[in-house]
């Protein structure tokens, strides 16, 4: 398949292990306390604020509905920052998927939200009904379609649109609150093995390392790779949240969330921390200089190379992480994952 891990040659199965001066608890606890819990606290707070704005100040739930759009932007930012932590509480009841139905290669969001706006079905608006509704009609990407799709903005009465946004944002806030509550009322303890979830510190490190590698893979292959497509067939409409022009912003937020994780995982190895910091900063500088919020430039050979160069920066971070951080943690994975057969 297309996954390429050009720098992963060794299958780091030998337990390399951290030196005893850096017990795994020293590694894990700051990540939980300083990165994970604040990210989900912020998400719970911003999604509650969004639901509140939707209930009190919604006009027509289009791109020009300023107060709503601003609250939406802050809540979506909080989700992108928190979304790298895809284990434990986000996986219960497919919560992360209900916040985040993306990529949507079969166009299910448009069909689901479009059908609601056309039928103005009020039966699904109550919170307990909406909680059971199709995942394609839930979460930030459904909201993005409803508020920012050119055609969808013309569908449905303002009152129905606002009622639907009310149901969507209430559901988003409930999901975010549930994730946040699980983190603060028990899941954090699971990360001190042996626990029901993790047998050993190795498994915890593996989970955290995988968070980093998966996050970088999403950035390279999905956030950048999907809109880039091929030179002959660029796919700008595959950029994440292109309707609200948030594609580049999401890439930046994700890299900013992954950078402190990488630094924390390299604790005790200042040279590696420096290298990681430089690699992230290089990618972030290039992202900042791109000035192409929805990666529309992928279609123009004159600007496409700049998106490709950004993708290469992310690939370089991945290579560094695989070559140096993985072996240090003793969790360089992928004997089977890399095989492809």
């Amino acid at each position: 398949m297309r996954l390429t891990y050009s720098c992963v040659i060794s299958v780091g199965l030998a337990a390399v292990g951290l030196s005893s001066a850096h017990a795994a608890d020293d590694l894990t606890q700051p990540i939980v306390a300083d990165l994970i819990q604040p990210a989900f606290d912020t998400l719970a707070h911003e999604t509650a604020a969004l639901a509140d704005v939707a209930a009190t100040s919604c006009h027509d739930a289009t791109a020009s509905d300023t107060a709503l759009a601003e609250a939406y932007g802050r809540a979506f930012d909080a989700w992108i920052t928190a979304s790298i932590w895809r284990f434990g509480p986000t996986e219960t009841d497919s919560r992360a998927f209900s916040l985040s139905f993306w990529p949507d290669n079969r166009g299910k969001i448009g069909k689901t939200v479009g059908a609601l706006l056309r039928s103005e079905d009020t039966g699904i608006l109550a919170a307990d009904e909406f909680a059971q509704f199709s995942i394609a009609g839930k979460g930030f990407y459904a909201l993005d379609y409803l508020m920012f799709d050119t055609q969808a903005q013309t569908l449905g009465s303002a009152s129905y649109r606002c009622a639907l946004v009310g149901a969507m944002t209430t559901d988003i806030a409930a999901t975010a609150t549930a994730i946040d509550a699980d983190w603060s009322t028990g899941f954090a303890e699971q990360l001190s093995p042996p626990s029901a979830r993790y047998q050993s510190q190795d498994e915890v490190r593996q989970e955290l390392f995988k968070t980093l590698t998966t996050g970088l893979q999403v950035d390279e292959d999905l956030r950048l790779g999907r809109p880039l497509g091929s030179f002959d067939k660029p796919r700008p409409r595959r950029a994440e949240a292109w309707r609200s022009a948030r594609s580049l912003r999401h890439l930046t937020l994700s890299l900013e969330a992954l950078k402190p994780l990488a630094q924390s995982l390299a604790v005790g190895a200042p040279n590696l921390q420096d290298k990681l910091t430089r690699a992230f900063d290089k990618a972030l500088r290039r992202a900042k200089a791109l000035e192409d919020p929805q990666f529309a430039g992928v279609s123009d050979p004159a600007s496409r190379f700049r998106v490709e160069a950004l993708k290469q920066e992310v690939a370089d971070i991945r290579a560094l992480v695989a070559a140096e951080l993985g072996p240090r943690l003793g969790v360089a994975a992928g004997f089977n994952a890399l095989d492809g057969d």
Binding site: M1, R2, N105, L222, R226, G229
Partner: peptide, 10 residues
Amino acid sequence: MQWQGDLGDV
């Protein structure tokens, strides 16, 4: 099966 199309396709 193993999907040979674009990554991220469901």
